[in-house]
């Protein structure tokens, strides 16, 4: 589904290479996790895939279902089925959460040549999905992420994911800033979306999240590359021993 080949990325502002040849394939229906020490390039990978400004791709490719992601604008990537759950969801004062969601859903439908969702249809759907994520009517009415707690922001990300029904979901440290209960709620939301046709790339520092969202494959990223790939047991190894053993082993 998502195929990343030899991806090289530098920062635009300074001549600094962050990704130095990332190779990664996420199959439909699978959950891949990426772990790695701070500064290894995990978040950069998520931003580059979703099209954030400030990065320059100096080599390699990223293809989603035979579509070249790197050639597209962020909104086109979203319409093509890519979704990034932000590590730090952005607050947008003045834009109602519901308006935002509906605009996004319909913009994607329009871009794909599908019929837009009616207000009634949308409302029914969003209420049902919000309920399972314990998002109340007030949170839907408030401006996007404004005054939301850390947990509320992350649940709101998952609600957007549930409404947009992307093919490929990237979760960038979705567990950061969450207490145990909130993490469980978020994980349940993600698990509910697991589907044969959908791929997941879960970026995290901790094994804890992977107890709830069970990965099929775990990658270790260091210094801009995937240095080791294994099964769920790899995450446990990191949890118990840290990264130093693995890094020493591949050095």
């Amino acid at each position: 589904m998502l195929e990343i080949k030899d991806l090289h990325v530098s920062l635009e502002e300074e001549d600094k290479q962050i990704l130095k040849g990332v190779n990664l394939t996420v199959e439909a229906g699978k959950v891949h996790a990426i772990m790695g020490p701070n500064g290894s390039g995990k978040s950069t990978l998520s931003y580059v895939l979703s099209g954030k400004d400030g990065y320059e791709v100096t080599g390699g490719s990223a293809v989603l279902d035979s579509v070249d992601l790197l050639e597209m604008d962020p909104e086109e990537r979203a319409a093509a089925g890519l979704f990034l759950a932000f590590q730090y969801p952005v607050e947008i004062p003045g834009v109602g959460n519901m308006t935002f969601l509906r605009t996004a859903v319909n913009a994607q439908r329009k871009a794909r040549g599908e019929e837009e969702m009616s207000a009634a249809e949308f409302l029914k759907l969003v209420r049902a999905k919000a309920k399972t994520l314990k998002i109340d009517a007030d949170m839907l009415k408030r401006p996007v992420n404004v005054g939301f707690s850390g947990g509320e922001k992350k649940r709101n990300e998952i609600l957007q994911m549930a409404m947009l029904e992307p093919k490929m979901c990237i979760l960038d440290e979705t567990d950061s800033g969450l207490d145990v209960d909130a993490m469980k709620l978020v994980a349940e939301g993600v698990n509910a979306l697991r589907d044969e046709g959908r791929g997941f790339l879960v970026i995290t520092h901790y094994q804890r999240l992977l107890d709830h969202i069970k990965p099929d494959v775990v990658h270790i990223m260091a210094n801009g590359r995937i240095v080791k790939t294994g099964g769920p047991e790899l995450a446990l190894e990191v949890e118990n021993n840290g990264y130093s053993d693995i890094l020493a082993e591949v050095a």
Binding site: P74, F83, F86, I92
Partner: peptide, 23 residues
């Protein structure tokens, strides 16, 4: 940041700029 957030959800740039302008 707000603009990228909206675009990453599929909102085309001109519409996203309008939303932020109205906001």
């Amino acid at each position: 940041d707000g603009l990228f957030y909206l675009r990453s959800r599929g909102v085309p740039t001109p519409l996203a700029v309008d939303m932020l302008t109205l906001a």
